[in-house]
Nucleic acid binder design. Sequence first.
DNA 1: GTAGCCAAGGTGACAACGTCATCTGAAACT
DNA 2: AGTTTCAGATGACGTTGTCACCTTGGCTAC
Lengths: 218, 218
Amino acid sequence: MGVMTTRAESAAATRRALLDAAAELLDLGGPEAVTLREVGARAGVTRGAPYRHFTGKDSLLTAVAAESWERIGDQVHALRTDPALSASEKLRGALRALIDVGRNQPHLYQVLFRRRANLPGQLGDGMDRIRRQLCGPEGDPAVADRAAERFQDEFLDIVAALAGERNARHYGALLLTSAHGIAGMELSGHLDTDKWHTTVDELVDTLVRMVTDAGEMT
Amino acid sequence: MGVMTTRAESAAATRRALLDAAAELLDLGGPEAVTLREVGARAGVTRGAPYRHFTGKDSLLTAVAAESWERIGDQVHALRTDPALSASEKLRGALRALIDVGRNQPHLYQVLFRRRANLPGQLGDGMDRIRRQLCGPEGDPAVADRAAERFQDEFLDIVAALAGERNARHYGALLLTSAHGIAGMELSGHLDTDKWHTTVDELVDTLVRMVTDAGEMT
DNA sequence: GTAGCCAAGGTGACAACGTCATCTGAAACT
DNA sequence: AGTTTCAGATGACGTTGTCACCTTGGCTAC
């Protein structure tokens, strides 16, 4: 932990600080609250500095989302490879992992599932080359997509171990979308447990039981 | 369709135009694109005029959401009371109604399920009285909540007719959250039909079949 | 009918924000 | 040592939400 001297170290530290500050502000007040000026201030730099690491605010938020996807992917991977857990426990854990993000970091969760705005190409300028240059081999959204896809693959493996390879994809999609819906409706306040006479845990249990039964009878 | 003379008519027309313009801009470019200035311009007034009808941008978007909820509620009500449809067709139609909003008006859909920001009270100023005064008997969010709840009630009745009163609430919650999740994941681009070897229609069919079978064996 | 009232709407102003162009200084390279 | 490169600082500009203040033309009380 020596004093930073090399330029690469300094830049990496700044990028790290920017991401941390952005994530913190996102948790506190949503995307509106994550101001490039405030992000820079918390990272010890000024307003324009983030543009040396990200193409703009959107790119910064996408990078935060990418890191979160990687974290969730690691979490589900750990569940899948844990020999102490049964197949249904792994599935329940994976679903809960996603839902818990929605509970504990609702603003981040919305960024994770935010609308893909960038249709590929279309603007044939030299912009693409610049963006590639700034954000590494390829743009940030591609990184986020890969991280999200890794999570989905880990999740798919868990489902396959429970419901068989045949129906894994169909049931996997059903389970994943359902969990996402549970998280989203609870997050938006539209899941009144008094009105529906049920809880998030009950819903998750029902989902797990459904696919478990279906897997057995295949 | 006489020329507007009375003040009430003029104000009502302006409010209507503001809502329409806001809805149009929302569809085109999302909440960021719905600018009070542009909304006013399209409604034939200037930037500050909307503040005579809504407390601010948030209030305007909430009012748009409320009208959309009422529309969806009417749609599901029509399905429920249509004697030409079977119970499962009604259910499928209701689920599709929600998902179709996500497909055709993705930005509006996100506003419908956006996070409730306003915790009640907290700011004990006279602001509450002013807001009540501006938006009628009570604030806009309450209107939106009531409209959303009416939709849920209509939906719940459809489920009850299919799965019985006993499990209606539990299955209703499962179906509604699942449909919301399907819409949300498709909207965010995380539902790759090639990857999951399934389509939205298949997922909806599976959901309907599930609750149909469960209702029969009860 | 006329004088006053009142709310819808117009206008100016302000702070905050995203973004870009330009500048600076120090590390990295030859 | 001289040059290049790039993280970061700074100034500036356009846009937006919001408020305070003003104007005007229907509405109401006499």
